[in-house]
Write a protein that binds this DNA or RNA. Structure first.
Lengths: 362, 362
DNA sequence: CTGAAAGCGCTAACAA
DNA sequence: TTGTTAGCGCTTTCAG
């Protein structure tokens, strides 16, 4: 059995000062003379003292924990998108001396049975909700009076701070890339278009065309699919190719659909990028492995998590009431699905812009 | 700002009893008359009372947390193997009223800088270590006197309770399946063969052949690769096929290598399963998607996590000193890489055995 | 700049 | 079966 570990009392005795002085030192709060500070720290080191979390928690009414809410299906999907967001948050949490309590929720939400225990037990100082979740869930959690940060998700009307992908900027970069390559007839393939992130990508597509004096043609747009999977991308592409005049390039709302598009193009006896160039969004792991390798908009997943946590910690520390939206820049990765081999070899990346935090307009 | 939440004191007052009675009721410990029990519970419900975790922690010297240690590269890999183990553990944790504190560690381990803070701060009641990690890390963690449970990992010599895949049983099922199909020349493709789990699969392969009166032929064995990825599988298969006489079936140490084998077989102008049948191990997501679909040994990932947590909780609750090894059964999934189309249609699964917990031999 | 004292909300002997 | 009484180890006023 382990020996009794030193308490703040032991440190105080050894250092010849009072408990509160030690407390001030380890919390780097308040004024302590440099001399006693050093003395205390020395003793802390010698004794291998570490304050006990429960005791601090009880006294300070903080838990040192951040709750992390994730939809179960999001978390366990093969593409480690949310896993990486979590990882980014966990890293940042360590730096900021927080623990993360991860819990998954189902698609349906029952307030009575599904409220995470850490909210009930006052065991989190803040909450990160990653990805699209049931709105009733967000409402319900809000009542606990704990700061909430949304990551890769936003709620209209309701105002929550959030960290989101620069969807619009990414879409603009993608479409601009196609325009630069000389394409005039650029299609859009999307699905689940209610999703705020995805509709932004669609808007970015339309804006960019208009900005370049091109008309947005309904015949080049396929957004009826509910899901954004490979099969849905293939279906959409099939419909686009059915028209007599079809686009020479397609911007897909995500990589899965883009890959579906490429499959369908091949199926139809056409080639990518010679007959139809394709750009995706997300840069999932598969995208660098498919043939041809997919040009896409890279999303910095860990960065989303890291920023989510850091913004949340700021809110907790300052009890700032400001609602902030942080835009995480993306990067266009030019690969073979838009370029010929020679050019693909020298592909470059272009960043959508600097990270940017904006106060939500009232 | 949220209203002050009720404390145990409020409940006691309302219920007309003492604090300790309330405490006894909510901890379902000790003897309380059914009558007062009901009265207290009623008040608890009315007031929406929930004990504060920090306070319980301080008083009871328990944190209510379980630490979950995972190697970073294991966690963020595309195949959600460890994600699922975690998920299984998280589910079980909820049922048992524990929180999980997940933290990742790098491959290298520096005791001074990499010791999880939750150990230092006495903030976990137990530890789950999932997957192969640095041994020095395990040694180091052991000193904190916190119960440790290994999942999908084992340490020879050192004795820790663990929950592991029935690797041997799975291997036997795989090889037996091939024997049943009439194969006599069965190869083995492996890598990272130091890994305890993988070497067990290799042993299972050899045992099964011997049990059936067949000789283990070195020319049919390829285990020199360091990694067990697709490319390594392909390389190994290439070498096997280079021999004049090559096996008609191959058992690969995992699905990644098995898929590599199939690619190489195709590359060589041969067919699976007609020319060379292939069986894998793990049943990763990809295995049901490749062409032909891969016969493999399914591993119940969530189950590993769930059992890991439950065994750990048992240890915590009973402070039982017994070292137990729990074997999680696997299932052979028969698909097209070993069967012809007709038989693949009626494929069945065979389980390796019941879940089994054995006391470690001294 | 430092110390004394009063809890934070709960559990756990020990009495009753 | 229930109540009383000490703390658990730390933070946080408030004096000094």
């Amino acid at each position: 059995v382990a020996l009794k570990r030193p308490t703040i009392k032991d440190v105080a005795r050894q250092a010849g000062c009072s408990l509160s002085t030690v407390s001030l030192v380890i919390n780097t709060s308040g004024y302590v003379s440099e001399e006693t500070r050093k003395r205390v720290l020395k003793v802390v080191r010698e004794l291998g003292y570490h304050p006990t979390r429960s005791a601090r928690g009880l006294a300070s009414r903080t838990s040192g924990n951040i709750g992390f809410i994730l939809r179960e299906d999001h978390f366990s999907q093969a593409e480690p998108f949310y896993t990486k967001i979590f990882l980014g948050a966990e890293f940042a949490a360590r730096e900021h001396h927080y623990y993360i309590l991860l819990t998954t929720v189902g698609n349906r939400f029952n307030e009575r049975t599904d409220t995470p225990r850490f909210l009930l037990e006052r065991n989190v100082d803040g909450l990160i909700i990653a990805g699209k979740v049931n709105l009733r869930l967000v409402d319900s959690f809000e009542r606990f009076g704990v700061p909430i940060m949304l990551v890769d998700f936003q709620v209209k009307g309701k105002r929550f701070s959030s960290v989101v992908i620069d969807n619009r900027g990414g879409a603009r970069a993608a479409v601009t890339h196609l325009l630069d390559l000389g394409h005039k007839n650029i299609g859009f393939v999307g699905g689940d278009i209610e999703h705020p992130s995805l509709s932004e990508r669609f808007e970015g597509y339309q804006e960019t065309l208009r900005d370049h004096g091109l008309e947005v043609q309904q015949a080049f747009i396929e957004i009826r699919e509910r899901d954004t999977r490979i099969a849905n991308g293939a279906e959409s592409m099939k419909r686009l190719l059915a028209h007599a005049r079809h686009p020479t390039a397609v911007f897909a709302v995500n990589d899965a659909m883009a890959i579906g598009c490429m499959r369908q193009i091949k199926e139809a006896g056409l080639r990518t990028p010679e007959d139809v160039a394709v750009v995706g969004f997300d840069d999932i792991e598969m995208s660098a492995l498919v043939e041809p390798r997919l040009t896409t908009v890279h999303v910095h997943k860990e960065e989303l998590g890291r920023l989510g946590l850091e913004r949340l910690v700021e809110i907790i520390d300052t009890t700032s009431p400001k609602i902030l939206t942080t835009l995480v820049p993306v990067e266009l990765i030019e690969r073979e699905s838009t370029l010929d081999r020679e050019r693909a070899g020298t592909s470059t990346a272009s960043v959508s812009g600097a990270e940017e935090t904006v106060e939500q307009p009232a």
